[in-house]
């Protein structure tokens, strides 16, 4: 059977029935076919909205896409973890790789320390295919921040005292500050001052005892979510007055901050010194705070203090929830 002998519309239908990894492998067969596949995927752009890299450890990462149900379609595993399956050698995206047979998803075997390099190569491959027409998402589940370019949304764990600042700086330089950055930070690491941390549109900072005052002062973009921040009356007053006078906060839609244990706000004193005397439903300081323990990953269950009650920017909340989930 020669697929090229079919009418063009039939060829397209055949390709539409394939999974993303099958299309990738097919595209490696010839230059012509690659052009055809890339063009077809561009037409199908409503289906291919994003590619998501999940990084668990140096010997395990998986890649999913929104093409066909958002399933994982590729993984990178340490050679010793693939068991008795016989690997097939092949050239894939310019790499000589081993692919074990009978895998549930396409698997690239790697040696220790190769995981990041392979993931970078795969990412560059997708960039060369789709450019920035789709969204690239990086979620790390371990204490290692990968250096990938053009990541639009990212969730990172920052746990290492020695490397936290340098790794985060390196990532932000590489990725050009993602639109959404969600950080799970080990208590006491204090990476709030890392340059460019507040340059993304949405920042979610989760730790026990973060410098909420620094984040609140520095963050001038769209949405800020801080879990267990250290905050005092003065910072809130300063922020409220700056916000009221549009002093750098024109784009800010949401500030969602919970207080760290031991920190309390004093609404009456804030009200006395704040230039905003009354909070209307459509003209409120977007500060939400409370001192109760939160259910993880459920920003919508926040309870708001009476005096700083505000509106919820519902779209932003949904976005965060979807991302976290």
């Amino acid at each position: 059977m020669k697929i090229s002998k079919f009418p063009w519309v039939v060829q397209k239908e055949i390709l539409r029935n394939m999974q993303l990894i099958e299309l990738i492998l097919l595209s490696l067969c010839s230059r012509k076919l690659r052009e055809f596949v890339v063009n077809m995927l561009k037409w199908e752009s409503s289906k291919l909205e994003s590619i998501v890299y999940h990084y668990w450890s140096f010997n395990k990462s998986r890649i999913a896409s929104t093409y066909k149900e958002g399933e994982f379609f590729m993984q990178i595993r340490l050679k010793s973890k693939i068991g008795d399956r016989i690997p097939i050698q092949m050239n894939f995206m310019g790499m000589d790789i081993h692919m074990p047979t009978e895998s549930e998803e396409f698997t690239i075997c790697c040696d220790k320390g190769e995981g990041e390099t392979i993931l970078q190569t795969v990412h560059h491959f997708f960039l060369s295919w789709f450019g920035l027409n789709i969204e690239y998402v990086l979620i790390t589940h371990c204490n290692q921040i990968l250096r990938l370019t053009n990541i639009r949304r990212s969730q990172q764990c920052i746990l290492d005292y020695k490397t936290a600042t340098s790794q985060l700086s390196s990532f932000l330089n590489y990725s050009r500050f993602p639109e959404l950055l969600c950080l799970f930070v080990e208590r006491g690491l204090n990476v709030e001052n890392v340059p460019r941390i507040a340059e993304g549109k949405v920042l979610s900072y989760r730790t026990s005892g973060s410098k909420g005052d620094i984040l609140l002062a520095d963050f001038k973009r769209r949405e800020l979510y801080v879990y267990k921040g250290e905050l005092n009356d003065y910072t809130v007053i300063q922020f409220s007055n700056d916000w009221k006078s549009n002093n750098g906060y024109q784009n800010l839609k949401v500030v969602c901050m919970t207080l760290y244990e031991g920190f309390e706000l004093h609404p009456e004193e804030i009200m006395c010194l704040c230039s905003i005397k009354k909070f209307y439903s459509m003209n409120t300081v977007p500060v939400y705070c409370h001192t109760q323990k939160l259910t993880p990953n459920s920003p919508s269950c926040f309870e708001f203090s009476r005096i700083l009650q505000s509106i919820i920017h519902s779209q932003g909340i949904r976005w965060i929830r979807r991302f976290v989930r």
Binding site: M1, K2, I3, S4, K5, V10, E13, I14, L15, R16, N17, M18, Q19, E22, L25, L26, L28, C29, S30, L33, I88, M90, N91, M99, T101, E102, S103
Partner: peptide, 23 residues
Amino acid sequence: CRVIGDMAKDKTPEELRIIYGIP
């Protein structure tokens, strides 16, 4: 087309080249 698309499952590029007659 589904039947033909399914032929691509778990195949390497070289195998795909043979199945689909790709030059």
